[in-house]
Design a protein around this nucleic acid. Sequence first.
DNA 1: GACGGGCCGGTTTTT
DNA 2: CCGGCCCGTC
Length: 745
Amino acid sequence: MDYLEGLNPAQRSAVEQIEGPVMIIAGAGSGKTRVLTYRIAHLIEQDVKPYQILSLTFTNKAAREMRSRIESVVGAEAQKIWMGTFHSVFSKILRFEADKIKYPKEFTIYDTDDCKSLIRSIVKDLGLDDKLYRPALVMGRISFAKNKLISYRKYSSHPLCHGEDESNGFPEIHKIYQIYQEKCFRAGAMDFDDLLFNTNVLFQQFPEVLEKYQKRFKYIMVDEFQDTNISQYTITKALADAHNNIAVVGDDAQSIYAFRGANIDNILNFEKDYPKLNVYKLEQNYRSTSTIVQAANAVIATNTEQFEKNSFTDNKSGELIDIYATTTDSDEAKSVTDQIFDIRQQHQAQYKDFAILYRTNVQSRKMEESLRKMSIPYKIFGGMSFYQRKEIKNIIAYLRVVNNPNDEEALKRIINYPKRNIGDTTISKVILHAYNNSILLWDALLSAHTYLPARAATSIKKFTILIDHFRDIAKEKNAYETTNHIAKVSGMMQDLESDRSVEGIARQENMNEMLNGIQEFVENPNHIEDNSLGAFLQEISLLTDLDKDNDQEEDFVSLMTIHSSKGLEFKNVFLVGMEEEIFPSTLRTSSLKELEEERRLFYVAITRAEHRLVLSYALKRWKYGKEIECNPSRFLKEIPNRFLAHRSIIQTQEAPATQNNTNYRSLLESLPKNKVITAHKVSKNFTPSDTSLLAAGMRVEHPKFGFGTVQQVEGKEGNRKAIINFDKEGEKTLLLSFAKLQIHS
DNA sequence: GACGGGCCGGTTTTT
DNA sequence: CCGGCCCGTC
């Protein structure tokens, strides 16, 4: 029981209260994962069987990590705990129960691209304007409905659905939704939202199935509860109804997924649904310096909607938070890279102690270029993931068709790759024939000779024979051998090998990596009970690249969006692109609700940092091939001055394009570098002065640069700058709207 | 049916 | 700056 010793009183109560409904409000860095881990270990110590525990986490990686931590307390038993994301846990249950809801066991999971492509074709078939009915928009509406458990039947009479569509000029979405759902059903496919929606359908229509799982899962835990949507909450509540042993963990301040249907109201409803609720608040932050904790608190306090929570820490104040501007986005990237290089040297840090966070994925490009130039190892999470690459999607499409021959989206992708003389018109005719005659797509292919010209029918015949052959192979051999065979016999491998360009070779390497991945899957003892092709496909379609296990030995800087960084922590965090339009995003400044979610996102970003937080923004940035002017983010003003160290505008010089990155030392020496400024000991009574009357010759103090003499003041309004010659740091240009200066003379 | 060139439009976050 | 789509040519 010694694992209980290291917990504070609130944490300990949250661990020990195993019966009945529990809500744990866990501030950032408050040891939430510890509590969850020990709670499960504690359950097992109390003789709860591991398979009676269902623990829903936010990422697969979080589940894996938690499992291995539990394992170190209770041993191999930990393997039997049901642990994973909502999507992965319930897709496994659906795979098992598929026949009940008339889906094939080997149903396909459509990814976002598949869904959009399907919507595009439906919009075309209906003769609608594809400029108006854009796939992303339609998809968003369908997703919105599914997350609220609104079926296509209910959609057309729902004021928030069809009603809203009509007033926005999209009266046909309900129709698209219906056909979309029919086509998915016939293709034996579910999209991400369907995995949850259909779980609800399963539990509602088959009480005996629900009862089976209610009996099994005596103890249920939900992490990141603030990010669950109605569909997820309904599943959880249904499962918990038999025993009422449900513990949810969340932090309303970190709710950042409303766009995905997440509903803060779930926290409020939880109190209504479970009047006997025990609430525990974990308020002590063990992660960050008090400067960072207080800055984050100040930021979140700006929001009107929030729970009472008082985040505090006993950690020391640490360094001030850096803020600075750069002239361009390239300079921003360069300065961040330089600082990472320097800090690593000075503090003997490792690259994995650093993260670069941004609001949107496109911002990673400039960072990546700069890191490459300096030969700094890095990894980009999110954005274009491994499984989204064309060559990978192609081989997966083959596997999908072999696994489920009615998978329309996969079929469209590979029926003519490599070239088999089956063009778009032919494919469209087959799909239309299947739809009009209400037959399966595969049957439409088999009977192609009855309605298609001989030439096209012959090509299709050849294709179906090929796929049948692959299915025979799949019956005899394991997933790895099958894939290997398909890659060769389909002609894919040859097609890749014929391309000797750098990209072509990279594609072959990706293909090999894919094959290795399958082999690992097949051989992994965790998959012993089901290492089939179908199980593999299911697993990878729900994997994000955040889930990848990182080799402990590897040392790299992490680049990701703030959204992806949730739940993670880094010693040094660089938050880049702190500009209006970007963060907060233009699309989210019109309503208070959305702006407050952006602010929570800022809160999440700040609280990722353990020791050092650096905020930067550019004055100019490239966008769509044009250079645009940027303004500093309004959020910067929400951090109280006493936590900030403003720095001069940083201008770097780009490295010559021809420079290769093999010898970064000489490259480094050829470039002007931003020194990392050692903290100046601020005078005890330091209070920033009004700088509107600042003039040349005045003596000033800056919290980071120390004392200096004003050389010149220029510009006007928000753009006023002062050139100051600091005694120790030399000449700096400071933007007066941000610089904290105390005038001493 | 395949392929290449030109034009247009997009702008968030993710399972 | 990108990728997707349309249209012309082979």
